[in-house]
Nucleic acid binder design. Structure first.
Lengths: 331, 331
DNA sequence: AAACATTTTGTAATCGTTTACAATAAAAAT
DNA sequence: ATTTTTATTGTAAACGATTACAAAATGTTT
């Protein structure tokens, strides 16, 4: 690999001049600039990013730390971040915490060690320690998907209360009263969606059957279990609402296996558009999160913060979209 | 951020000694080692990876370049790579080429510029130029999913011919004769699967209806179109076989919309386990690729090559798994 | 006690850039 | 023609680690 020294030698100038040419700095004769460019070309020279990063103490990378790379929500967000970053000549360092705070700590440290320009992160439930420290060291950072209490930091979220409210209200409007619901355990998102759920009941002067509300980890198997349990109740629910994509698959699988008819025996409504919801019969009524927009907004926020580290933190709240299909038809 | 100099000062030693302690090198008095460790602790010191990387000309990162981060095949592979890398204290730089050779070039260059220890890549159809160059510069590399002709390089693939052969044979055994099939265009994988398809017919002394074989880009919309077209034929097929997950969704959506009954009106069989195949009625018979194993094998291969750059290239071929479900029952 | 071997530590060069600062060359003003 | 100003280039010091090599300290042998 040729270095800047080699280029300088061939062009018959100093490394400083080469650097100036490459950075498009002023004060270099057009003639010399030509020579340098020719040398760069002939050697197929590319600046060593590691050396540059060491010298200027920053880089053109941004970090993206997600909780689960297999969750379509995150891949869609990632896609958006990738696209925007690419447009701005940034590269993306994508990491998967697996909902593991220890991994989150490690990756957050790693990001700093790598001199990233900033990071976009979907924090795990438990606020990690490296987290607040990274914030202190003013690493530009924006949070997605989950609000972090207490800290003043750029974030982009969806209006979970409103989304759950609308989904619940839709079930109520379709005549469902005994609504079984499952929400993510220990997650701010989950509890907000629970709030929205309750709000819908309240505003319709109804009482939710609190024994039908289950809090579980956002995993397919737990969704499956929860649905099985709801179905086995003495007085089973007349509809099931799930608060995220993974729970949703699990719950649907349980209903499917139990051969209860949707929507005749039981209504079904869920969060997240995950590809299969329109392939089944009937298609599922869902709340669709604007995943791509979330990624876009997060990247824009991050770019702005990098440019201006002192601006006040901003919180962008996007509305989710209720997509009515056939799974909760009139009861 | 404290540097090794700060640690050295506090411990009252030279930076060389600090480095030796941290690298667990011999020749340092236990007493001194203690002092250094205490200093490290008190300052909360972490070595600067950029500086280290510049000095030793390598790093603990590996690159993973995939064609489409939204394709469950790749996320599952990524997951495996992540897991193994984590166990070996490597971090993973994940990039998405979007099937775009230009992006592939850029990322491949970037990998070298970042001093990665090696890269795992699912190459785009067109062999990119930076590619062969990277190989020349002996960047440790392993290829997944797609064979690259001409070059002698570690790779892990599945036996596509065999897989397609078995899937086709299964359809034939179930009495299907006019099998409509769609294969990925311009892709080695696609053409291998086509070969397997033909082989099954040949070995059963049957003649495939070549007018029912369609080559399209591996995208959902093209799968949808292709299926629609097959259905509208004067003599429509009695079964449809799709050669990858995205085509599969599209084709299924077309069948679903057209209200043809599976398997009574038409059989359906497909590649890739993508989550929805067991949620629909009937569940879909598929070839399941050992995605996690692919990622594992690739990472192991890469680690070995990093350790021993001169060993001869190895090609690992994994068998795919035929999962028989209800979508092609006896015709 | 001197000579030698071995262990422990420090000095300084190095990796490939960027960038203050100094030095030189060219242009403008006197 | 000399001085002053401005534009162009080079020199060398960072950035923060690792690592030959030299030096010092300790231990061993004669």
């Amino acid at each position: 690999m040729p270095s800047i020294k080699d280029v300088a030698d061939i062009a018959g100038v100093s490394t400083a001049t080469v650097s100036r040419v490459l950075a498009n700095k002023p004060h270099v004769r057009p003639q010399v600039r030509e020579r340098v460019l020719a040398a760069v070309e002939s050697l197929n020279y590319r600046p060593n990013l590691v050396a540059r990063s060491l010298r200027v103490q920053k880089s053109n990378k941004i970090g993206l730390i997600v909780a689960d790379i297999q969750n379509p929500f995150f891949t869609s967000v990632s896609r958006a971040v990738e696209d925007l970053a690419y447009d701005h000549e940034l590269s993306v360092f994508l990491c998967n915490t697996d909902e593991n705070p220890k991994k989150e700590d490690i990756y957050l440290d790693l990001m700093q060690d790598e001199n990233v320009a900033g990071v976009i992160i979907a924090p795990t439930r438990q606020t990690a320690s490296a987290f607040t420290e990274a914030i202190k060291l003013d690493l530009p950072m924006v949070i997605i998907d989950r609000r972090l209490q207490g800290v003043d930091i750029d974030s982009v979220l969806i209006d979970n209360i409103d989304a759950a409210y609308r989904l619940t209200e839709h079930l109520i409007a379709d005549g469902h009263r005994r609504i079984g619901a499952m929400f993510g355990l220990d997650s701010v998102t989950g509890s907000q969606r629970h709030q929205g759920f309750l709000k819908a009941f309240k505003e319709h002067d109804l009482q939710p059957s609190s024994d039908l509300v289950i809090h579980v980890n956002a995993r397919e198997d737990e969704g499956y279990q929860a649905a099985k349990e709801l179905l086995s109740r003495a007085q089973p629910p007349d509809a099931i609402l799930t608060s995220n994509g993974l729970l949703s698959v699990g719950a649907f699988r349980a209903l499917h296996e139990s051969k209860v008819a949707i929507p005749d025996d039981i209504g079904f409504a869920s969060f997240d558009e995950t590809g299969w919801t329109t392939l089944v019969n009937p298609p599922i009524t869902i709340i669709e999160q604007p995943t791509y927009e979330i990624g876009q907004a997060a990247t824009e926020l991050l770019l702005q913060r990098i440019k201006n580290p002192n601006r006040p933190a901003r919180e962008i709240i996007l509305k989710a979209n209720l997509v009515v299909r056939g799974s909760c038809a009139h009861h």
